Amino acid sequence: MKTFRSNGKLFLIGEYIVMDGAKAFALPTKFGQCLFVKDSSEYSNQINWSAYKADNSLWFDVQFKLDSLDIIATSNEKLAKSLQNILIQAKSLNPDFFNSKQGFSCETKLEYPQEWGLGSSSTLIDLISQWIEINPFELNQLTFNTSGYDIACAHHNKPILFSNHPQINVEELELNWNFKDQLFFVYLNQKQDTQAVVGNHYKNKLKDWDLINELSQLVLDATNVQELADFELILTDYQDKLGAFMQLQQPKEMYFKDYEGCVKSLGAWGGDFVLVTYREGMETYFKEKGYNVIIPFSDMIL
């Protein structure tokens, strides 16, 4: 049996502007997804695929013909067609892989609750790319067509500075922050569709290149900051400027107006996790509002 693993992701700062080639500061997570592949002598010319959640419950399963990638049977037509498209595009990048008449039994397993939004799609792209021996960024372009930061997080084990213009560039970072123990991730009890948000609120806007350059500098500043107070100022400044441009409310404005610490959206605004900076009584504050998933930085980030 072959085993492959990919890291999840959180987008610290640089969201939206990364689509225009600006640098982004992202965090690979300790939670990810695994793919287990066994050669199947029982079913030749067939891929039997089962996807499991973190609690070992079956997410969905599907059977494909290996040569044509036609769906034979599935428990979820929508998910099966999405996976089918990924495999079809993977085949376009490595046709020889699918010429074999042997069968495969594939199982994926999430390491975190599905609703957390840490990258079930990006890890899947990376896992399939490892298995079929193709470039994950090329497969991403042919399928979900995200900026690519999430793909980079999947196989880097340190925080990264990422850009995709004029080509993919990933720089691993050594964070010399003395305030990591004052950073926490709070789950907002709702999953965000990143592609929909980016499409609806950013892609169609006229670009303000002066603003993009200002925000890009804040991204770089965030990687070099030393003190928590300065870090909070950078994150707040970024959100204020971007929020005004996009005419979107920040989560702090919507849910946590009276919280004294910083609350930073991660990735698409409006769902998944936020980063919060510690203040006395923090845990009680968030739990009283119904936000019970509070994870220390060191427990989440590689």
Rank of each mutant, 00 (worst) to 15 (best):
F64M: 08
V197K: 15
I295S: 05
A54Y: 15
L110D: 06
Q114D: 12
G267P: 02
N56V: 03
S265N: 14
D193R: 05
E171M: 06
L175F: 09
A222Y: 03
T108Q: 07
A26E: 04
K191Y: 07
V274C: 15
F31I: 00
E283K: 12
M254A: 07
L206D: 14
L66K: 09
G32A: 02
F185G: 03
I294F: 00
F162T: 13
V276K: 11
R279S: 14
A54W: 09
Q89V: 04
Q33I: 00
W59V: 05
F31S: 06
I17H: 00
N140H: 00
D208R: 03
V225Y: 08
S92D: 01
Q114L: 14
K205A: 04
L127A: 10
K109G: 06
D67Y: 09
Y149Q: 05
K101R: 14
Q167M: 10
N189T: 10
Q239S: 10
Y149I: 09
D193N: 12
P251D: 12
D126P: 01
N178Y: 05
F162M: 08
D61R: 10
S100M: 07
L173Q: 15
L69Q: 02
K53A: 13
E171C: 08
F162K: 05
T29A: 08
E214K: 15
P28T: 01
F104Q: 06
K287T: 13
S120A: 08
S216E: 15
L211M: 04
Q249D: 14
D61W: 06
L220W: 03
L83W: 12
D126V: 01
P296N: 08
Q130S: 04
I72K: 11
L27A: 09
D193W: 03
G243H: 05
I17M: 00
K241S: 08
Y285S: 04
N94D: 06
Y238Q: 07
L275S: 06
A196H: 09
G117S: 07
N176A: 01
D70H: 10
L79D: 09
C153V: 06
F245N: 12
D181M: 02
E232H: 06
P251V: 12
F184C: 09
D240G: 01
L66M: 05
F179Y: 14
Q249E: 14
L12T: 05
L93A: 04
K9R: 04
F4T: 08
K257T: 15
K91M: 08
K2E: 11
W269F: 01
Q195M: 09
L12S: 07
K264P: 05
K109H: 14
A51M: 08
R5W: 15
Y238W: 11
E232A: 09
Q84A: 07
E115D: 11
F256K: 10
L188C: 00
N204I: 14
D39N: 05
I160P: 03
V37R: 03
